[in-house]
Amino acid sequence: MTATPGRLDLPARRRRHARLIAALTTLIGACAEAAGEVYRPIAAAPPDTAVTERSEEAATVLRELMVCGELAADDVLDEAVDSAVLTGLLALQEARTASDPSTAAELCLSAVPHIALAVTLASADLD
């Protein structure tokens, strides 16, 4: 029995993908560090300091949700942030209990968009 050409390249393909994933996770880490450098001083600022960070996309979506006027914008935004954080944390919890490191890494990376969404929503300025 002979191996198919695609099968012969599988180990090389896996290594190539592993290098790509490693580079992308380094990039995610660098982005997180850069965001931390921006938001740590804001978080540590005295309460009377004005902070005007804006996410137009999140604000637009929220305004669309508020058209009916039944809910307060702050309440909807808070719930959206909580939901995104919870979804990300659930993915991280699942990563902790994964049976192998590869699955754990994939699950950990799947949490990133949820956490990024939570940051976007939390930084939305509706004023």
Rank of each mutant, 00 (worst) to 15 (best):
A58R: 05
L126A: 09
A12S: 04
E33C: 15
I42A: 05
V112T: 06
T97Q: 10
E70P: 00
A35S: 15
V67F: 10
G29A: 10
A98T: 07
A122R: 06
E53F: 13
E64M: 14
L8H: 06
A34N: 10
P41Y: 05
L92F: 09
L71H: 04
L92Y: 06
I115L: 15
R7N: 02
A18E: 09
G29W: 07
G6Q: 05
A91Y: 09
T87W: 09
S55M: 14
P11E: 05
M1R: 01
P47E: 00
A116R: 00
R19T: 06
R54S: 10
T4K: 09
D48K: 07
A18L: 03
D75N: 07
G36V: 14
A50E: 11
E37K: 15
T97K: 12
L90Q: 13
S102Q: 07
R96I: 05
E94G: 06
E106A: 13
T97N: 06
R13C: 04
V112F: 09
M66S: 14
A91I: 14
T60Q: 11
M66W: 06
S55H: 11
D74Y: 00
A50D: 09
E106G: 05
V81T: 03
A12E: 02
R54G: 02
A12W: 00
S102V: 10
R14K: 00
G88E: 12
D74M: 01
A23N: 11
R96H: 07
L77T: 01
T49G: 00
L24S: 09
L10P: 04
V112C: 02
L65P: 05
E37R: 15
D9Q: 13
A111V: 04
A73C: 03
A105K: 03
R14A: 10
D100N: 12
R19G: 02
A50I: 14
G88V: 11
E70W: 11
L24C: 08
D82S: 14
I28H: 08
I115R: 01
A84I: 08
A43Q: 09
L107G: 00
A124I: 06
A23H: 04
I42L: 15
L117H: 05
A91F: 14
I115V: 11
V119R: 13
P41F: 05
